[in-house]
Design a protein around this nucleic acid. Structure first.
Length: 284
DNA sequence: CGTAGACCCTGCGCGC
DNA sequence: TGCGCGCAGGGTCTAC
């Protein structure tokens, strides 16, 4: 479900509901996710703490938790939606916590009686805690590359990252050590906008093309963010991914349909086990 | 070293 | 109608 724009939309809709709340307790309903959920550790690091805010790094959501006493250190509740995760704030009903949802693996009970609910049918998501100071050094984060919407991301960055590497550009663009947050949808979309063939070797891309690609990545993500922001504004109230498919896509998922620019049928190929969509006329 | 492929898990839509 | 197959937006590990 989520790529970077969607995760950012979730962050923006959750943050006002969560900031200032206090975590009462964390309930693990199903611990068997990609990394097992540990209810005892989650409670040790989160229960009784006030939520200072919600940040994002790559596709991870970071819930900042204040120390309950000056002797303790800030912690962070890290959440990843995987392929099918949904985070919603749910209201208490008649003084009772809301009834369990299907695939609701984690429930963070808040002092107001509301809960932060994590549902994830495919169980590729993650939830764990860390001392806030250890985030950057943690193996989940230490290898991550630049944020695509930051000033550090441009054509020169891509060109430097590609030096000494081989292979096609599309999987390269999805390599989180190069740039984070570019998932399977927006990798295809950005290459279309930039006019670059997804199979083109990273060794055969000019500086001008790297510039164009970096601009395309930024544009595609920002456009999706703008559209997601307007169509997903009730996300936190439990309406999951309504509006997701309203984000206009040029080639992704459109095999056989006419290219919006030249009319040739959109093609699909599989690269590194993932579908890639492109126009053979517009992308070289 | 870097890259390609398998794998984690469940649900859905399609063709037969 | 029922069933099997392929496919799905992420990330990590292993084998080459």
């Amino acid at each position: 479900m989520p790529e970077l724009p969607e995760v950012e939309v979730v962050r923006r809709t959750l943050a006002p509901h969560l900031s200032g709340e206090t975590v009462r307790r964390v309930e693990v309903r199903a611990e068997r996710l990609r990394e097992p959920l540990n209810e005892a550790v989650l409670n040790r690091d989160a229960a009784g703490r006030r939520i200072a805010g919600v940040r994002r790094r790559a596709k991870y959501l970071l819930v900042d938790l204040e120390p309950p006493t000056a002797a303790e250190a800030p912690t962070t509740l890290v959440l990843h939606l995987g392929m099918s995760g949904r985070l919603t704030v749910r209201e208490a009903a008649g003084g009772q916590p809301p009834a369990p949802l299907p695939h609701e693996h984690l429930v963070v009970h808040l002092a107001s009686g509301r809960v932060l609910s994590f549902c994830d049918p495919r169980r590729f998501g993650q939830a764990f805690t860390l001392p806030a100071a250890d985030l950057d050094a943690d193996p989940h984060f230490s290898h991550l590359g630049v944020e695509p919407l930051s000033d550090d991301f441009d054509g020169a960055h891509l060109r430097r990252a590609a030096a000494g590497r081989r292979g096609p550009v599309k999987p390269f663009l999805m390599d989180a050590t190069v740039v984070v947050g570019v998932g399977n949808i927006y990798a295809s979309e950005a290459l279309f906008v930039a006019g670059i063939h997804p199979k083109r070797s990273v060794k055969r891309i000019s500086a001008a093309r790297w510039d164009r690609l970096a601009r395309a990545v930024r544009q595609v993500l920002e456009d999706a963010l703008a559209q997601g922001g307007t169509t997903l504004n009730d996300f936190a109230d439990g309406d999951g991914n309504a509006g997701y498919f309203q984000v206009s896509l040029s080639v992704y998922g459109r095999e056989g349909e006419p290219c919006p620019r030249c009319g040739q049928p959109v093609r699909r190929v599989v690269q590194a086990g993932r579908s890639t969509f492109y126009c053979a006329g517009c992308q070289t």
